[in-house]
Write a protein that binds this DNA or RNA. Structure first.
Lengths: 257, 257
DNA sequence: CGCTTTGGTTAACACCATTAACGGTAAACG
DNA sequence: CGTTTACCGTTAATGGTGTTAACCAAAGCG
């Protein structure tokens, strides 16, 4: 999947195999509710804890690694949700991915917390760099770009943006895939950040439970957030009303308990 | 502060004293970066860990207790920030409190995470009930009510709200202080939830670091979120432009490192 | 074949929450 | 006032965590 070079030698092949197994077992562990621990991971693959230190430098590094992989796997789910929509319905694809993001987060709070509610400032540079290429980030930037290429909704000019943001938009750290966007259209990245803030906010709030449980279950606040942001993406009220009824179908939560 | 009854007897007085000390020491511990642990707390007050079980049932209960107290203390800071504004400038007071919320969160990520990024679903009922009377919640509902009593910005009628929300607004679980609001004006609670979602979203995102660091430092995205929500509170663009320059002064972060 | 590197082991350390058994002291009661 | 009792602390022990050190076997390589 991610061949850093040519892993020709047998040693390196086996090494990467067990490395992959470590991450995979870790994911399986916290998918079934257990919490990540070196001993548990090692035990699940017939090893003892200190052996893992031949592969990861510390527990935190394992967490970062798993977080990265979980993000990748989750993003794949968002993508299939988007691809279930007609390919020329770009707004529908974006909304489907967003709704699947919420659904996934509520169904897998552990994973969500691991990836999105773990302070990255404390983690090493490793995590920092990983986030700049976070799969979920590039997916959503892609989907928004897709919508914009279709609808050409107004995008703020660089001049009307906060001064300190211009250099950031010129070379954003966060996702990537910005090269596709012309310099004068970089205001689109600002809109992406706005949207990501909105989506992250409501989903994190719901996952953390800092909202009336009934509001969470109904998903109405989520729909409201999306609806209020819709005009920014060139979606008028009439269209959004229709989109809402579509989205409600996808809102249902597969409660695992 | 919270006399459940008459703590006349000497025993009960001393008991509540050490109880208060436990919470206080806990707060001091994680304020200086260390993380909460029964041993650390006990050690800091010249005791051994098992002794704490005379006061708290479990580690989780201590965490909940401390979280509640941290929220109370932080809310006090938000309140003084609001009170530093002219008492008839209700919007100014609300914005000052919100900005102080962000500043506090970024300066004390540990505390913020403890209070606002801890999944409450997993905690016992204790935590659940506490959140329904969370200090920060009642402060912000009060401030918004204050603005509304002054400006009477439009509030959605119950009929135009999502159907499932009506009973929630009639008797919301989250903050409190809803009794002040007439039944036909309960749409105001919906607006409060919208605003809280916005504020929580951007602040949590910044604290967790899932945003370009330069964007966080500048605070521009925070200002943008507030600005986009302003019209809902009856703040027009011209006024908000003025408010922004006021807010930038308060934005500066007292980095402790 | 011998040497080295790699990948595992066990033992140990320091920390954590939690429980059980015990003791002293101070309040409460007759 | 004396006795009892309940409270508040202790130490000891259990089982969990990440992490390091010392050691050892096997695979790779000259």
């Amino acid at each position: 999947m991610t061949p850093t070079a040519a892993p020709t030698t047998r040693r390196e092949r086996q090494r990467e195999a067990t490395f992959a197994e470590i991450v995979e077992v870790s994911r399986a562990l916290l998918r079934e509710g257990a919490e990540l621990s070196l001993r548990a991971v090692a035990g699940a693959m017939g090893m003892t804890a200190p052996a893992l230190y031949r592969y990861v430098a510390s527990y935190q590094e394992l967490v970062d690694l798993v977080a990265f992989e979980v993000d990748k796997a989750a993003t794949a789910r968002f993508a299939v949700a988007a691809d279930a929509v007609a390919p020329d319905d770009h707004v529908g694809r974006l909304l489907a991915a967003a709704t699947e993001f919420r659904r996934w987060a509520l169904a897998n709070p552990h994973e969500f917390t691991l990836v999105f509610a773990n302070p990255v400032a404390e983690s090493a540079c490793l995590r920092r760099e990983m986030i700049t290429v976070a799969s979920s980030g590039v997916l959503f930037t892609d989907l928004i770009l897709e919508v914009w290429l279709d609808r050409r909704f107004p995008v703020p000019a660089l001049e009307e943006l906060p001064e300190s943001m211009r250099e950031v938009l010129a070379d954003p750290l966060m996702p990537a895939k910005v090269e596709k966007i012309a310099a004068e259209d970089r205001g689109l990245v600002w809109i992406y950040m706005q949207g990501w803030t909105q989506l992250y906010g409501i989903v994190a709030l719901e996952v953390m439970g800092h909202l009336d449980p009934r509001v969470i279950d109904s998903g109405e606040m989520y729909l409201d957030v999306i609806s209020r942001f819709a005009p920014t993406l060139g979606i008028d009220d009439a269209e959004m009303a229709q989109r809402r009824v579509q989205m409600r179908a996808q809102l249902a939560l597969p409660w695992t308990h």
